[in-house]
Design a protein around this nucleic acid. Structure first.
Lengths: 215, 215
DNA sequence: TAGATTGTTAATCGATTAACAATC
DNA sequence: TAGATTGTTAATCGATTAACAATC
């Protein structure tokens, strides 16, 4: 991994992984960059370039072995890791997230859930007891989670993130409307639901304008 | 809007909107591209280029009026629209989504929720009664929703999307693991939670590798 | 008027695509 | 061996940044 891999390539890796997983579960053993490119609606060139950032996984005249490539991408992404993760904010969004996401298959283990609502503290989600947010610092000192999922109201995000950084949390999956600045030593993935809604709204509006113009 | 606006620009618009909203609620009246660029960690040049895809919203020697620009971006995105939306799949993810998203401020009105679980049908979320999924075609014929939020198990996604397209639904917000192909006449926004997790996993792993190398 | 900052053109940079020699 | 398809280099395209004249 000599040169820095571009963000565009990294963004596409999970998608490759998804498609290969589907091929795998359909019992398909090998695939050429051309066939995959048609399924995925990208160019074959791009697929080959992307993969070759990490090594040569194919074979001339044959293509790629699906299972092998699938596993290699998993290794590149680090999906065999078990980075410890905690959830901050056990509202309905946070809870839905936990129920619907297979952390274990994505490189993470969920080891703690925190909230400030006395009604929630003590209850269990997916076998994990919800703890009081005031205990989070001690918990981090004892257990050293790598990642925190932020699913709180935006008003408290900054304060919480600041505290978690101080305790050594190094990665954030952010579901709140607030933006987490990705400073030195910290990696962040933002999932801004409202941004997606706005983009969709734009696309609909733009398409409407286009259609109207044609008339 | 003569030439096609690039996807990169569109992707950034909601972020501008978010930052301007924050400035606005902090009572800040005007801002220069330079100051905004420092807050947002982008270049001033990019901000000016992006905005000028849609028109000249600033004034030399002054900068941009925050409220004016905020409203202009809302107009560009089409946030003043009321595109009718339906939710397919009232699992905990679908429900959390509805509870946490202010559709009205993002250009949409939620007018229906559908599920196939008899336990859920008839119950209400946010004042909307959950209907039987078998009634969805009739509902669409009567009410003409523009957009559907897909929050079902992936096994049924293709079949449902196919049906909705046939009935005239033209936009999809996809939360399922399955991918919705964005065919002719249809716009799609995919929110693949597991892709985000994988990207985060990659970033952590890459950062670790980097640190290790230094030792 | 002088200073500030835009809108916009030109230069640079990086990402995507095309082409093809290497090789299974 | 002939055909297929990769890995990789070179060409193209588009997006970002820099620069500056226009102008408030």
């Amino acid at each position: 991994m000599e040169k820095q891999v571009s963000q565009s390539v990294i963004n596409r890796l999970p998608r490759y992984y998804r498609y290969l997983g589907e091929l795998l579960s359909n019992g398909i053993e090998r695939i050429s960059s051309k066939d995959l490119s048609e399924k995925m609606n990208v160019t074959a060139s791009q697929i080959r370039q992307d993969l070759n950032c990490f090594g040569g996984f194919g074979q001339q005249g044959y293509g790629y072995n699906v299972e092998y490539l699938y596993n290699e991408i998993a290794a590149i992404l680090g999906l065999n890791s078990h980075y410890k993760a905690i959830l901050i904010g056990a509202g309905n969004m946070g809870q839905a997230l936990i129920q619907n996401t297979n952390f274990e298959k994505r490189g993470f283990s969920l080891i703690g859930v925190f909230d400030n609502d006395p009604q929630k503290i003590g209850k269990e989600i997916k076998g994990i007891k919800i703890s009081d947010i005031t205990d989070v610092e001690q918990f981090i000192k004892d257990n050293h989670p790598t990642m925190a999922i932020i699913s709180t109201p935006r008003t408290v995000v900054n304060q919480i993130v600041h505290k978690l950084k101080d305790c050594g949390v190094r990665a954030f999956l952010n579901f709140s409307y607030a933006e987490i600045a990705n400073s030195e030593n910290v990696v962040v993935e933002n999932i801004h639901l409202s941004d997606s809604l706005m983009r969709l709204c734009y696309k609909i509006s733009a398409k409407n304008a286009e259609t109207t113009k044609k008339d």
